[in-house]
């Protein structure tokens, strides 16, 4: 990369601390969209088991649909392009931004714009859904911590929405 190019994030580096909740940007990470008819083909590609049930997650692999998985991995993780495998591998590392919402009021912040029932949304579960009008992928990383994936161009709006609810 040229020295003249610097990475600019669409959300502030400084976290927003609200009442009983903190909103912060996740560190940059590698992201791969994996599409396959058979989960076993994805397992062959990754060399490890992947969740088969929609909504389940396993060590950074989210099962989003019957033929769709999202791999979240440390920045720089390289994945084979899957030559010969019946898997479509697309690197989408810089398409999304991760926003972490953490604290006793974390689920309340998400519920402000999302109709999911977070009382019945177990730790480890992940799903694509809608926050107000913005498509997001929500993963419950812990009882009081959510990782939210959002497309870069929507991130400033989502950040402002989270920060506004957090400070209420």
């Amino acid at each position: 990369m040229s020295e003249g190019l610097t990475r600019r994030e669409p959300v502030p580096a400084e976290p927003v601390s609200g009442r009983d909740v903190i909103v912060r940007a996740a560190a940059p990470m590698a992201r791969y969209a994996l599409r396959a008819r058979q989960a076993s083909d994805v397992e062959k590609l990754l060399g490890r088991p992947v969740p088969h049930k929609i909504g389940d997650t396993d060590q950074g692999v989210l099962c989003l649909g019957p033929d769709e998985w999202l791999l979240l991995a440390p920045a720089g993780t390289a994945l084979s392009a899957g030559e010969g495998a019946a898997v479509a591998v697309t690197e989408v590392s810089d398409r999304n931004i991760g926003i972490i919402v953490e604290g006793p009021r974390a689920s309340e912040v998400l519920a402000a714009g999302c109709p999911l029932d977070f009382d019945r949304f177990n730790v480890g579960r992940a799903t694509r859904t809608i926050f107000e009008t913005v498509e997001v992928i929500i993963q419950r990383a812990a009882a009081d911590r959510f990782h939210v994936e959002v497309w870069r161009s929507f991130a400033p709006w989502l950040w402002t929405a989270f920060a506004t609810v957090a400070s209420e």
């Binding site: 989003l64 649909g65 799903t127 694509r128 859904t129 809608i130 498509e135």
Partner: peptide
């Protein structure tokens, strides 16, 4: 009664 297609576009995509 109407038979129609729907898509879970902001969910599993199907």
């Amino acid at each position: 009664r109407h038979h129609e297609r729907w898509r879970h576009i902001h969910g599993c995509g199907r």
